[in-house]
């Protein structure tokens, strides 16, 4: 199926997963929607094309938004959304890459997606897919995990330009990041921008901003409204 933004958002809201986290399941919706609608070069008819862009949902909690966008873009039937996490469903409360078409990594344990994305970005470069990009979405509280900081330091130091991190920032971390999240990336040599979480044009501009010699981060902040 192909669906509009509004129809897809409705798909995300109708899913039954994540009753513990009613807000969590849709706050990542806008950046994921903009990526799949306007940025990523992925053909649902050829989900294994080695040259495809990769999207790694690292923050596996609350995947309803992700599932809804994948269904809207035709990776699997929208009916799958109606029995998420049932014993017969391929869609769990954490996505499983071996079960769901279009899901690139199995996630749910925080702090794995970004380090995996570093490896994939290196691998794509080594195997000649130099135009292929790896986007990885993390949550702001997920950045507490030290494994992310190993990845941020290393990717910045080696100028991993085919890597793009999207931080969905709803200020959910208890301790937080004094001075802002973007500064943690910038000090490690990343290109960075902080934009409104639901500002589609700003998200698009940041996702497509050239960064030829370094990785890039887009901090999509719930504290900034659309312009």
């Amino acid at each position: 199926m192909t669906a509009t933004y509004e129809q897809t958002l409705e798909l995300a809201r109708r899913t039954v997963t994540d009753v513990r986290y009613p807000v969590v399941k849709t706050y990542t919706f806008d950046p994921i929607w903009v990526l799949y609608d306007r940025v990523l070069r992925i053909d649902p008819a050829h989900p294994d094309d080695p040259a495809r862009d990769r999207f790694y949902l690292s923050k596996g909690h609350g995947p309803s938004a992700f599932y809804a966008v994948l269904a809207a873009k035709g990776f699997f039937p929208a009916e799958w959304l109606d029995d998420i996490a049932s014993p017969h469903s391929r869609l769990g409360s954490h996505p499983d890459a071996t079960l769901v078409p279009g899901v690139e990594i199995s996630s749910g344990s925080l702090g794995h997606g970004l380090p995996l994305a570093v490896g994939t970005a290196l691998g794509l470069r080594a195997t000649g897919f130099t135009d292929t990009r790896v986007f990885v979405l993390v949550g702001d509280a997920e950045l507490d995990e030290g494994s992310n900081h190993e990845a941020i330091q290393y990717a910045g130091a080696v100028g991993l330009a085919n890597l793009h991190v999207v931080v969905a920032d709803n200020a959910s971390g208890t301790v937080g990041w004094p001075g802002g999240i973007a500064s943690r990336f910038e000090v490690n040599g990343w290109s960075a921008a902080t934009v409104g979480l639901t500002d589609h044009d700003a998200l698009y501009r940041s996702f497509t901003e050239p960064h030829p010699d370094r990785p890039r981060v887009t901090v999509a902040s719930a504290m900034l409204g659309p312009h």
Partner: peptide, 17 residues
């Protein structure tokens, strides 16, 4: 960075290396 060591290896495998 041993966590990164293993994850990078995992990411390379995802890139079919």
């Amino acid at each position: 960075r041993e966590q990164l060591l293993v994850s990078v290896a995992g990411g390379l495998a995802l890139a079919e290396m």
